[in-house]
Design a protein around this nucleic acid. Sequence first.
DNA 1: TTGTACGCGTTATCAA
DNA 2: TTGATAACGCGTACAA
Lengths: 331, 331
Amino acid sequence: MPVSIKDIAKEAGVSPSTVSRALRDHPRINRDTKANIQNLATAMGYVPSAVARDLVARQTATIGIVISRLSDPFYDRLMLGLEDGAVSAGYRVLLSSFNRDAKREAEIVHDFSERRVDGIIVAGAETIEAYISPERKFISPIVLINRPSYPFSVSADRFEGARRVIKHMIELGHRRIAYVTWGSEHPDGMPRLSGYQATLNEYGIAMDDDLIVHGDGQITGGIKAVPRLLGLSSPPSAIFCFNDMTAIGVINALRQKGCEVPRDVSVAGFDDLEMAAYYHPSLTTVRQPTYRIGRHAVNMLLRLVREEGDVVPKILEPEFVARESTAPIAI
Amino acid sequence: MPVSIKDIAKEAGVSPSTVSRALRDHPRINRDTKANIQNLATAMGYVPSAVARDLVARQTATIGIVISRLSDPFYDRLMLGLEDGAVSAGYRVLLSSFNRDAKREAEIVHDFSERRVDGIIVAGAETIEAYISPERKFISPIVLINRPSYPFSVSADRFEGARRVIKHMIELGHRRIAYVTWGSEHPDGMPRLSGYQATLNEYGIAMDDDLIVHGDGQITGGIKAVPRLLGLSSPPSAIFCFNDMTAIGVINALRQKGCEVPRDVSVAGFDDLEMAAYYHPSLTTVRQPTYRIGRHAVNMLLRLVREEGDVVPKILEPEFVARESTAPIAI
DNA sequence: TTGTACGCGTTATCAA
DNA sequence: TTGATAACGCGTACAA
């Protein structure tokens, strides 16, 4: 059993509350007793119990972060913003990931609630149903990342991101443009798909369902998509991918089939991974303002925690990055 | 304020202890009262307080995981093993990352101690000093990943991994072999460097300090290393890199200088990123058994928690993966 | 300046 | 089968 405030009190010959005051740097306390107690605490290896402190304080000064996948670079940069925001506001941060498993996601949110975190931020929620259900009241306020239909959310405008990619391809002369999606019903797949469709429509290009194929957000999904696309009677000259990993898979599979990127086919991704600029060819892609999203999300959550007036969904602009993997259509 | 056991008791017209029993599925309790209370709890949106429960239980059934960088794929796969191990043993997991900041690392470990986690696992510790210091007694047992000189640790044999890479290069005919390291004093840099040196020595190849240049474990570090290497009067024909990201930087910079990999220079990395097999050229590298490391680490930690006898450092073998980025030396 | 008493939400022990 | 009581470690009125 760890040493408690009582142990120190006994050792110092004072009452537990005096120890508490000394340790908390209370103003009204004797300099010597304070110094003595603080030395004693260090010597005895005292570590205050957050469990007990939080119980009496009825708050934990902690926010819980729930993310889909650890390895997704989107979350990496997001966390920087989240941590910076939380720490500078005097909050600690707890993190957990659910690996795209909706059940785990619910468990983690529940676990954080039991721990009485002051607020929760969920990035990559499998579905927003559980969060908007009126019967389900949560202990702590919850902010969602990239789920703009949820009232307390901070998102990147993925629709607009997709739109710029497609516009870019159209301006390069492409007309047969494919989209390798990821989970059409998944909330992360929707905005890109809508942006893709709306932009084709905007330019009067006929939609073709054969050009929309499913991936899995990873390299293998991109690889599997290519044969289906090349097998079409009229194959695409440009392929927009759900993300950079998918694009890498697509480029590999194309190369395997003897298609050179961008000479024969243009390919674009989404995310702007650190290595996107160093892939061969370097990837045309879309960068989401992840750090800023993180900062905004924490601010929004803290407003909710402190019940400081209205909160409206926030949407930030992404950045289009043109590189080598897209080029004018070959004649 | 969340609903407490007392609120339910008042509503149900029973005592708080009855509610506690009903909720905990205690054997000796009336079927009807139990059902009634459980319904009431759900209706009132009751979420038990882990804070209070843990205080009286004097344990949290939680292990804290402290990792260096979220984006490092090493930690991604490690977490899978860690989580699987913990969950299957009935423990919950708390995660936090310190972004290579030793101060943050110490803060997080301290925070976890205050939270009274039952044990802590640190991966990528900046230094082991704080953990072996005799004066510093920790509340909870601590297991370190990839820090074999610490008594409670699980590591991959990076020395052996480096050895196999160098051996492979030597067998391909290379004699001028460079190493792009990362932080020579950093505990992650040492084993690879030793393996590199020992293997050259083993084959009677003279050491040349000019062939050891510093990187930063990232793409930019690899890029910066190349001019220094190519500027040598006798440049290397093979370059061993601290990790795959460094290798990607090196390959890019070589290409910029008109050097083709592996035609002109062979390059190898470390880690086996998911995309290492899909880079162009695909990367020769070393795969650490991350999942197994995670499982072992949890087992070791739980043995420590339960004070079940002796624990000795565990070292697991890595796997060498030969791909396209290394080839026989050009004559 | 310091000590006493109480409460935070929960579980466990003992008595009813 | 249920209720009263104490305890976990800490912070804070209030009293001394």
